[in-house]
Design a binder for these strands. Structure first.
Lengths: 144, 144
DNA sequence: ATCAATTAAGACAAAAATATCCTAATTGAT
DNA sequence: ATCAATTAGGATATTTTTGTCTTAATTGAT
């Protein structure tokens, strides 16, 4: 469904959020450990999230990644997915046609419509906040 | 969502079905032309569909690929996707956890549930027949 | 001012997905 | 029996994704 990069990006953002609530910055090393991902690759993905103003970085000693508390509630899953995988997941044609719409639909256009809309709605209405709070309270898990 | 291989596989199966209704066998060359896909790669994917008894091949002169008319109605999209991409699309965890279920859910487990079930239902309840008939009647398109 | 810890960035490597090519085997028509 | 058309299968090539490594730049602490 999502690329590995996107999976790591989502999990990284969630972990950073949980730590930001505690006032802690985190390093790629800690993130990779916590979400069970390759460290250097994760660092690359963090750069993309920084470019898209989803996470914020502080260079130098005692630096690391963080998300200002007040922003966590306003960040939606869709923004993270968009920053890493783009919007093809809910905009592109299910069968890869360049042109696919009501007037010129691919064979599964109508069938896919509901699935895509469900996905789009879910991504646009799920906030980083709720995901992070569930992790903090042990209701969900970032690895294994 | 699907791999390129899977997209080609679905479109190829639909085209073969439309031709099988007319009693025609088709070659990879004709298929590739009709669905706008790389010929040799498409031929590879057809082999997978043959192995899974979804399409049938006849070697030699006047040979080609076909699907017995009476089978077209019983082939579901899910079988084609399964033959090529496997079942991770609606069985695997959205964030790639090895273990992800009600007792040990990933952060998006519940959110994804509906999307995955919608997708699963759609794939399992869409027959090759309806897709092929829509192509034949010009209601949907295999390329451009 | 120096040092150690850190992010940024780009080059490089490995693996997987996508795509091509060549040869062998099969088969209907002549 | 031969030929031409066709699928099967394996080797190879290309592209994309995933992953690693190295160096430069930044920065707080001392």
């Amino acid at each position: 469904m999502f690329s590995k990069a996107c999976e790591y990006g989502i999990k990284a953002a969630i972990y950073i959020a949980t730590q930001s609530y505690e006032g802690n910055r985190v390093t790629p090393k800690a993130i990779a450990l916590e979400i069970d991902s390759p460290k250097a690759f994760t660092a690359k993905i963090l750069q993309a999230l920084v470019k898209h103003d989803i996470v914020f970085s502080v260079k130098g000693a005692y630096g690391g990644f963080e998300i200002p508390k007040e922003k966590i509630g306003r960040i939606k899953l869709s923004q993270i997915v968009n920053a890493i995988d783009g919007d093809t997941i809910y905009k592109g044609c299910g069968l890869g046609l360049n042109q696919c719409n009501e007037n010129h639909p691919c064979p599964v256009h109508d069938k896919f419509k509901r699935v895509r809309e469900e996905l789009k709605y879910m991504l646009e209405n799920t906030s980083l906040e709720e995901l992070a709070l569930n992790i903090k309270s042990g209701l969900s898990f970032l690895k294994v």
